[in-house]
């Protein structure tokens, strides 16, 4: 088996399959009045990702992890539980957002702390921590609000596309492992798309969004802090994932679900192309004749 095929198998095909099987088992096992209960979705997404992480970069060598990438494994496991909590608790939106801010702030601190005082001197470190925390939190909260209003196909499709496109942006920004991990998020969230086309009443709630936004957000924090990928590229990726807002427009809302999903997908693809094209050009310009 070729190297690329092997990486695709371990990083996308098998994680996606694991998530799909767990989702189907969960939807079949837990029902309320004949309707599936979706609390298992965050767990299925996280387990698929954890498998990919194990195969791509290995298990953390210590706890707490000393390495920035290894934190992704720990946080993915935490996000499985957090996603379930977001799904089952009846906390008000504002209360959930406050708890989420605390969580994001603590995780960002744990991950970027080694750079403070070294790469980021003095107040710069605190500014980076604040900026990354607020950026991640705002994006996650926006995703949650979108999923609350549009719990169907567009959210799953756009999140998967964003993670996939982000994978290419990270690849062309000299970070293959973060790229593959982003691809793994695309694979595990992408399996929701055919499943939701098959089961029209399936939902992507705050729980599933929490898991995806938690993992993808930390991949982006890692990319900005440790690769480093220019912030503008990550902001553009985040913007690409907000296109389901288009589905809330009255003109689009009247259309069938698949039509609004297509509209969101096209718009997401356009925004992703805007960030991917210059990144690719910069990558090619810096490459030698033979690549490596």
């Amino acid at each position: 088996m070729s190297f690329l095929a092997q990486q695709l198998l371990w990083g996308a095909v098998l994680p996606g399959t694991i998530t799909a099987v767990l989702l189907l088992m969960g939807w079949r096992a837990w029902r309320r009045d004949g309707v599936p209960v979706y609390w298992g979705t965050p767990v299925a997404l996280a387990i698929g990702y954890l498998f990919a992480h194990w195969r791509i970069v290995g298990l953390p060598l210590s706890f707490p992890p000393s390495d920035s990438t290894a934190w992704l494994f720990v946080v993915a496991a935490v996000m499985a539980g957090w996603g379930v909590l977001e799904h089952v608790t009846n906390e008000q939106v504002r209360a959930r957002a406050r708890w989420r801010l605390l969580l994001v702030g603590v995780i960002t601190w744990l991950v970027v702390r080694p750079l403070m005082g070294n790469v980021w001197q003095g107040v710069t470190g605190w500014l980076w921590w604040t900026g990354l925390t607020l950026g991640w939190w705002l994006w996650w909260t926006a995703q949650e609000r979108i999923a609350e209003r549009l719990p169907g196909l567009p959210v799953a499709l756009v999140l998967s596309m964003t993670a996939g496109g982000g994978g290419f942006v990270l690849l062309w920004s000299n970070s293959s492992s973060l790229s593959q991990l982003s691809g793994a998020v695309a694979a595990v969230s992408g399996v929701l798309v055919p499943l939701m086309l098959w089961r029209h009443n399936a939902r992507v709630g705050a729980g599933a969004v929490a898991t995806v936004a938690g993992i993808l957000g930390l991949i982006w924090v890692n990319a900005i802090a440790f690769v480093p990928v220019p912030v503008v590229r990550i902001v553009a990726l985040a913007a690409a994932s907000l296109t389901p807002l288009v589905a809330l427009l009255p003109a689009v809302r009247k259309r069938p679900a698949w039509a609004s999903a297509v509209a969101c997908a096209v718009l997401t693809a356009v925004v992703l192309a805007v960030v991917m094209f210059p990144t690719y050009r910069a990558y090619v310009a810096s490459a030698s004749a033979y690549g490596y």
Binding site: D67, L178, F226
Partner: peptide
């Protein structure tokens, strides 16, 4: 390009 990749978190993670 390879040197920059070696400095990234894929290999030496030199920022950290």
């Amino acid at each position: 390009q390879r040197d920059n990749h070696l400095r990234s978190p894929d290999f030496f993670n030199t920022r950290q």
